[in-house]
Measured scan of single mutants.
Amino acid sequence: MKVTIEENEETGKFTIKVKTEDGEEKTIEIPKENLEEILAKLPPNVEII
């Protein structure tokens, strides 16, 4: 699983794009305050880009 994290400076939010092993892609946008909480919940086999 690969996770790409991009900061949107205009909105102050982060866009998180997840690509699973089977090629499925999902995108979510979260507030900056929630980034550490989300990262802590990721499984250890995740590659963060």
Rank of each mutant, 00 (worst) to 15 (best):
L42V: 03
I30H: 01
K32N: 04
V18F: 15
K2F: 12
T27C: 12
N45Y: 11
E25H: 04
K32L: 07
G23N: 03
F14E: 02
M1C: 14
E25I: 12
N8Q: 04
E7D: 05
K26F: 15
A40D: 04
I16W: 03
A40G: 07
L42C: 08
P31M: 12
T11W: 04
G12I: 02
E29A: 04
P44D: 08
I16C: 06
E36N: 11
I48T: 03
L42H: 01
T27R: 06
V3I: 12
V3Q: 00
I49A: 04
K13T: 14
E7L: 15
K32R: 13
K2I: 13
T11M: 04
M1R: 02
L35V: 05
L42P: 00
K41Y: 09
I5T: 01
P44F: 13
D22K: 07
E47P: 05
K13Y: 13
P43V: 05
E25C: 13
E25D: 04
E25L: 07
I5Q: 01
I5N: 02
K13H: 10
E6W: 15
I38R: 01
I49V: 09
K17T: 14
K41M: 14
I30Y: 03
M1N: 03
P43G: 15
V46L: 05
E21C: 14
K41W: 13
F14P: 01
I28R: 01
E10T: 11
P43Q: 05
I16A: 00
E33H: 07
I30Q: 01
A40S: 12
K19E: 10
I49F: 10
T4I: 11
K13W: 15
I5F: 03
P44R: 08
T4H: 06
I38V: 10
I38L: 14
N8S: 06
T15I: 14
D22E: 08
L35A: 02
K32P: 08
E25T: 10
G12A: 02
I5E: 01
T4Y: 15
E36A: 14
K19V: 15
P43A: 07
E21S: 12
E10P: 03
K41E: 06
A40R: 11
A40P: 02
K41G: 11
V18P: 00
E25F: 10
E29L: 10
K32C: 10
E29C: 13
I16F: 07
M1Q: 04
E10G: 08
T20I: 06
N8W: 02
E37W: 14
K32V: 06
M1D: 02
G12Y: 05
K26Q: 12
N34L: 15
T27W: 15
E36T: 09
E36Q: 13
P44L: 09
E24F: 12
V3R: 01
K19I: 14
T27E: 07
K32H: 08
E24D: 08
I5K: 01
E37V: 08
P44Q: 09
N45E: 07
E24H: 10
N34W: 15
I49S: 06
E10F: 13
L35C: 07
K32D: 03
G12F: 04
E47L: 14
E33W: 12
L42F: 12
E47I: 14
T15D: 02
E47N: 06
K17W: 14
L39H: 00
P31A: 13
N34I: 13
D22M: 07
K26N: 08
I38Y: 15
G12L: 03
T27L: 08
K26I: 15
G23H: 02
K2E: 04
D22V: 05
K2T: 12
K17Q: 05
T11R: 05
E24R: 09
V46W: 10
E21D: 10
E33Q: 07
M1H: 03
I49W: 06
T20M: 11
E7K: 09
E6A: 06
E47S: 09
K19G: 05
I16H: 00
N45K: 04
K13M: 15
N45V: 04
A40V: 04
F14A: 04
I30G: 03
E36W: 15
I48Y: 09
I49Y: 08
G12D: 04
E33A: 10
K2S: 09
T4S: 07
E6G: 03
E47W: 10
E37M: 13
I5Y: 03
I49H: 08
I49G: 03
I49C: 09
N34Q: 15
I38H: 06
E33D: 08
P31W: 14
I5M: 03
N34M: 15
K13L: 11
P44G: 08
K41T: 11
P44Y: 14
G23Y: 03
T4E: 05
K19N: 06
G23D: 02
I30V: 14
P44H: 12
I48D: 01
T11Q: 05
E24K: 11
L35F: 05
V46K: 02
E37R: 09
P43C: 14
I16R: 00
E29G: 02
N8K: 03
L35T: 00
E6S: 10
I16T: 00
E33F: 08
N8R: 02
K13E: 07
G12P: 02
I30F: 08
T15G: 02
V18E: 00
T27P: 01
I30W: 04
L39N: 00
I28P: 00
P31C: 12
T4C: 13
